[in-house]
Design a protein around this nucleic acid. Sequence first.
RNA 1: UCCUCAGUAGCUCAAUGGCAGAGCACUCGGCUGUUAACCGAGGGGUUGUAGGUUCGAGUCCUACCUGAGGAGCCA
Length: 436
Amino acid sequence: MTQTYISDISKHLGEEITIKGWLYNKRSSGKLGFLEVRDGSGIIQGVVSKKEVSEETWANTEKVTQESSIILTGVPREHPKKPGVYELDIKTLEIVTLTEDYPITPKEHGVEFLMDHRHLWLRSKRQHAILRVRHTIIKAVRDFFDDNGFTLCDTPVFTPAACEGTTTLFEVGYFDEKAYLTQSGQLYNEATAAAFGKVYCFGPTFRAEKSKTRRHLTEFWMVEPEVAYAKLDDVMTLAENFISSVVGRVLETRQEELKHLERDTSKLEKAMPPFPRLQYDDAVKMLQQAHAEGKVENRFEWGGDFGAPDETYLSSQYDKPVMVHRYPSAIKAFYMEPDPARPDLALCVDVLAPEGYGEIIGGGERMSSHELLLQRIHEHQLPPEAFDWYLDLRKYGSVPHGGFGMGIERCVAWVCGLEHVRETIPFPRMLYRLKP
RNA sequence: UCCUCAGUAGCUCAAUGGCAGAGCACUCGGCUGUUAACCGAGGGGUUGUAGGUUCGAGUCCUACCUGAGGAGCCA
């Protein structure tokens, strides 16, 4: 028995086909049954008429329940009232397994209940739309780098020490010693960039921060490109080309999903280069003026890092992602290259997504001087022996280089217009949430 | 770690300190074009836990537990 996928239904109009899937929802009108069937590729409404089918098929139609697995045969055709929409005239309905008491009903549910049933929640239309956009974003990310001369050089998940020494790490046993789950592949990227020129890594990242907000996961996926000989301006140009390429791909191929999510795509269409480049100093002035005008609650002082409300205000001033660059070195990672014109500033950049989605990219130019890097390691009270290989990169053919990291889930949340990143990954890992 | 809010039927939510309710889901019946279908009937409860105030607590007070949102930190 061959199987036809619902996504291919338009190629089989008028033919008898077999659909293998699950019952999404059922409605009936006496001797006429309406079965919404999903098979992973899509959803189609099947129509069963009592007088057209066998007693067995009609009995199955009456007793089949939501999310029962079913195999049906029938003939697809256009919906009588909706042009471009297809229906299936069902001839036979076989129940593979009858489901009893499916927990997720067609009505509303709360977050806790849905999260506890994430393994089933994934079957819903909304989750389907989001995860298909996620798939497309990841594909577009890989295509962008693959098509631009980058080599994929994935970095380890087990690491011997903190990459940046600031954020909390997950500690795991590693035979007789301790290891930590990676919080960034960047340091390793710098080694592979010196070997391959343009590289990227893409994998899971772990942060043991006790953050409990709509923007945080403890396990998330990050893509990190790194380019030898790149200066800060090159990094920013790469970032804006990269983001616009990814967003453009979603707009090209996922209109249906974005429509289901009720995303205002006109806002995404504006995410085309060039992105505004805002120096930290000027961003501070904007925030201070906004405070004076009563638009921001707290007065921002030069030297601090932006909080979520600050980022939201700054991004609200633009209709496309904004790139904030040259933060004070004191609040950035130890490996950031200082600005020769202003040594107290780091040649770094954060890309803030529009509509309050916050920082989706962080990156910049890395320090190329062995002497200065060693000094910074000492200043940050990091163990130099843990960074011997990293320092080697400055001993053997050091060059200016830079790159950035983008959190996939925040990007998906922004593109889909979601309230929370928990829906952007099949099984989110969050503070106090390890199951399912 | 801190701040705020919320826990009542399988789910989503009502109930002035005074009889524990509705919709969905489920079971039964009705309907040949339904779109979270609809109409009628039925079963379904230790109101998060422990204590306190009161003639009387789902409701007020205290502690704890669980969850949500936010802060800090970050992508």
